[in-house]
Design a protein around this nucleic acid. Sequence first.
DNA 1: CCCAAGTCCTGGTTGC
DNA 2: TGCAACCAGGACTTGG
Length: 290
Amino acid sequence: MPELPEVETVRRQLAESLAGLRFVAVARAEPSMLIGGSAESLRAELPGRDVQDVSRIGKFLRVKLGGAAFLTLHLGMTGHFLVSQGRPDSEEYAFDSHTRFLFSLEPADRASENLGARSPSLTWLEFRDIRKFGRVQLTFGAPAERLSLLGPDAWKGEWGVGHLSRRLGGRRAPIKALLLDQAVLAGIGNIYADEILWEAEISPLRPAGALTPAELEVLAKEIPRRLQQGVDLLGCSISDFVDTEGQTGMFQQTLQAYGRQGQMCRRCGQTMRRVIVAGRGTAYCPGCQR
DNA sequence: CCCAAGTCCTGGTTGC
DNA sequence: TGCAACCAGGACTTGG
């Protein structure tokens, strides 16, 4: 599942491979994944705009485009981008049935009268997503409004233990549910939530408001630390995450909690358990996570 | 058939 | 008691 470290891995690659390019055409667009627009409006508005920046908040990517436009992207559960260089003699790009969006780009310094013409240096940007949970939104003047509803970025945002105590205080929901709440902190998903709570030795079932100041301190340290490991290892490929070159990450080799139900806890030796929290499968150690 | 799980939406509950 | 905040669960989606 693409969570913050996976999306950051993709962001870095897109920033690198799309720099200096501009959109030429929209060869494919899945209407059900488009927010606030149609495939027709995307085809009308995107071509000709150059990529100026690729940034990220939580699990959302935002591509800043010429003319004060923004392309907001979310990978959902199974989404990934593939970038490849042009095949000028082939109109039949090798997309498969899960290709939901297909864009072509060319160097932005090419003369504008050549816009849309076949280019020897075409770049293909492909958004594949088996389950169609991904989203694409084109906005003008400002990034998508949904981004303003997000809490600070869990990895790079400026927040501390004070933020946690304010947002978790008095809440009865289990701590894991609030780690997954993107309005509290943006970027944590099911895998990293289990990992962070294991590292912090806190049960995912604990009511968030019942955490002690000491526990909040541990949590505030553990969240960016474990996410940093994910970024350093180029993400977690537990299911089907791959980067824009089709490569897998390595974080899955470090998993201590996620998916380890029934196995021995590597810290205390007890058998790991699986429960449902916030509708999500949750693995934790009843021995040392309190 | 159930399970996986991102986000959004709905309807019921809680507590000030 | 009123009502906003809160919280649980369903919808969506497709392959294993």
